[in-house]
Design a protein around this nucleic acid. Structure first.
Lengths: 359, 359
DNA sequence: ATTAGCACTCAGATGGCGAGAGTGCCAGTG
DNA sequence: CACTGGCACTCTCGCCATCTGAGTGCTAAT
């Protein structure tokens, strides 16, 4: 798409204004701003051409212009100014992250709510499926036929599951079980544990009741769960603040979609660290997101700890501000979690997304 | 409040109808239903008196009647039929609970979403503060100055925290640390661990770097967190389904209130198992809930595992249906978590809440 | 190439009107 | 005396017509 410099400026002006006001913007408003030194008539002509090019849209004949998804795309790809965070903002993020990171089990939720409160949009945080490999087992005896299996993975997360058996097991057996599991099933990637491994463990343990195989089944479940990743959404209420979601049905649609996290697990994937991906309106595959935008940033702190944080909002979004914040959070996460690897700065940030499926 | 039998029937009729339609109900509608064999004029007179008593309200002079909070209170206390769940429903709940309960760390969330999907209202689940006592420690070595402390509590929950030190520690030390913690700090209720205990552990361990005290500080934090209880809210999107929350501002208010779980931790408390508490409109202390109702059920599976599940909705709520479901879920939870204690049936259910702060 | 001017369009606000639902009250009835 | 039929009254809501103003596209002038 090759368009004149002046058109680009005008497009930017429309988008900047629309992003903050959510009102269609007219030629007069742009002329009055005085940035361009052109009369409203001239701008009107340009607006008409931009509309013909599909970069702007007109809600109705006598309204101002509104950016189309392709308009946003162009803006994001070429026009948008990279925003730098202020000292205070970066410090605040660093500080919050330091605190959050200490509680690994609530990490996702916490980082999500950090992102949400920082951007004022609903945020999503997900951990990308990883090869789940156990690094240690613990089995806690609760009563004769109940115990809890605690599995620590190589990615330093801890998972647990309650097991209830139809027969009773004495405490000593449970301890033996734990040690057998520790020697037989650690360091083996999920998926590789098969019947033969279980059999040999059973023999090693002198188990006659099929106990090992029962517990192994549970263990595999735990690993499977862990390998499946995790997704949380926070700050959904933020949606209702936005004029585009004053229609409760629209808001309800999107919120129910978001609250089923399985939808999110499918969504993104991909590698890279610190880079941003922006999906504008119809570029989203899910129908429920067709007139929303999603901005995601990847974090990556070694093989087993990586994922995505992002926000969801209307196509009218502060792309550059949100991208900057998310990118910074993701980079901070990578740095703090990864044992002292080099932190990729915001400068290295690359905006991805080619807009091939513009409509 | 002493009112004629006929008035009670009429009040019930109004409430039943209003609960399902959300429309003010008029005398004719009640007369036409034919349950009472009275003419609309008679019912009109009764309605006028019920309104004078403050049990009903009139949105405007020529509208039907709407139950007032006191009206609901009376209904809940005296009029409401206890609803029995169908065979299918109880089975479904039991089945879901069996599954959910296996993942202790996600228990709250899962039970919350069970309650929410069953009742079609936003649900809240909280674990009541308990005396947090560790039953086992594990320390996982990540690298020379990073490790994870895993604490298992007597209530069979597992917590963990990342520790990063400014100096390095060799792996052997970490193992020794774990064993000292296991012998010194297990079985001791949170709050009792003090400086002298830490000192003696330090000596037992031969620690010269203050390592024990650092880790102990973290441990106490974990215990403190655990003792503080946990609250989750699920299914907030359900609110938007309801006519009373079609106003986005109202919905936003309530949703933001709910999304800050600290508000909820304050709310209920109290003991009892399986019994229901209903807070109608202004009976709620929090201003944000003044025109909503909250129904909660308590579960209690021994000293360390108890809490509350509940739902939030408009005052126009299916009190009896929701109460029955919550009560059943709570009882099931008590039964499944508590090691085989007697399950309190729905028959034993008591409705609490005296409505003293009616307006 | 730009701009001033002008006729035109259309969404949204405003106000009046009628329909309908529901009420309160009164007079009549078993 | 409790109940009912009837009636006048009230008030909301939806509908329609009107008006206003923002914004456009086009044309003619600079």
């Amino acid at each position: 798409m090759n368009i004149s410099d002046r058109k680009k400026k005008i497009l930017s002006a429309v988008i900047d204004s629309y992003i903050t006001t959510a009102e269609p913007v007219g030629s007069k408003a742009i002329a009055d701003a005085g940035e361009l030194g052109l009369s409203s008539a001239t701008i009107r002509n340009e607006l008409a051409e931009l509309t013909a090019l599909g970069l702007l849209e007109q809600p109705h004949t006598s309204a101002g212009r509104v950016p189309s998804p392709s308009g946003y795309r162009l803006y994001v790809n070429e026009l948008m100014e990279r925003q730098r965070l202020s000292m205070e903002e970066t410090e605040e993020i660093n500080r919050s992250l330091q605190l959050k990171i200490k509680q690994l089990d609530k990490l996702m939720t916490d980082v999500g709510s950090l992102a949400s409160s920082l951007t004022s949009y609903p945020a999503l945080a997900l951990a990308v499926p990883a090869a789940a490999t156990a690094s240690r087992f613990d089995i806690i005896y609760v009563d004769a036929n109940t115990f809890i299996i605690v599995v620590m993975l190589e990615n330093s997360t801890v998972h647990n599951k309650l097991i209830r058996l139809p027969f009773s097991v004495e405490q000593g057996m449970v301890a033996r079980l734990a040690s057998v599991f520790n020697s037989s099933f650690t360091g083996i990637p999920h998926g590789v544990i098969d019947a033969s491994l279980i059999d040999s463990a059973e023999i090693a343990c002198g188990d006659t009741m099929g106990l090992v195989s029962v517990v192994a089944t549970f263990t595999i479940e735990v690993l499977k769960d862990a390998a499946q990743g995790e997704a949380v959404v926070t700050g959904e209420a933020q949606l209702l603040r936005l004029p585009e979601f004053r229609d409760p049905d629209k808001a309800h649609n999107l919120m129910s979609f978001l609250s089923d996290s399985s939808h999110l697990l499918g969504l993104p994937a991909g590698d890279g660290d610190g880079d941003i991906e922006i999906l504008i309106g119809p570029e989203n595959v899910a129908a429920e997101l067709k007139d929303s935008s999603v901005i995601i940033a990847r974090y990556d702190a070694g093989d087993n700890m990586k994922g995505i944080i992002g926000v969801v909002g209307p196509t009218r979004m502060d792309y550059s501000g949100v991208a900057a914040k998310l990118s910074y959070i993701a980079a901070g996460l990578s740095r703090l979690l990864g044992a002292g690897e080099a932190p990729p700065g915001f400068d290295k940030l690359q905006i991805k997304g080619d807009g091939t499926n513009e409509h």
